[in-house]
Design a protein around this nucleic acid. Structure first.
Lengths: 81, 81
DNA sequence: GAGAATTTGTACGTATGTATG
DNA sequence: ACATACATACGTACAAATTCT
């Protein structure tokens, strides 16, 4: 898994969202998604950037974020509702 | 025009987006919208907060933002396309 | 055409609030 | 009481696009 490209015109948070989106839609990632802090550390970006990626996925209905609990993948069958 | 309420549970950026949305949908605000910096100053919030409000309106299709130019109200007739 | 100023966008850092475990 | 985690909000900095001098 290559690092995110800091020189790309594509924003880091979009790149990260893309990675996660791919893992989710392919079914490889289910259940709980890594926290913004964990993602920030493992991808070498700021927490804010990771947070933005997570917020993006949530706005797409791919995940639901619950305060104090975490971000969870919405089962494919429940998507679009 | 009352100030934004810093103690409200409603986020400042949402409050600001609400103000602008109202001005736009009522037709009182057309053409160019104040810059993020100007909004931040006049409403006593950070530029980040103002930007978020503007981004929200853009995501709703109420405005279009153009780098180096500004944010512009989408004519009512063109909304939803 | 060069340079400065303006404006949106992205990114990082930090702090605080709120909710859950 | 404490740790974890999302959300908001501040400040700052730089890049990119446009406009003005």
């Amino acid at each position: 898994m290559p690092d995110l490209d800091h020189d790309s015109p594509v924003p880091l948070w979009e790149q990260l969202a893309g990675r996660l989106r791919e893992e989710i839609t392919s079914g490889r990632l289910t259940g709980r998604v890594s926290s913004a802090t964990a993602l920030a550390m493992s991808y070498g970006v700021s927490r804010d950037t990771a947070l933005r990626a997570l917020a993006q996925l949530a706005s797409e209905g791919l995940t639901v974020a619950r305060r104090g609990r975490g971000t969870f993948v919405v089962p494919a069958a429940d998507r679009g509702r």
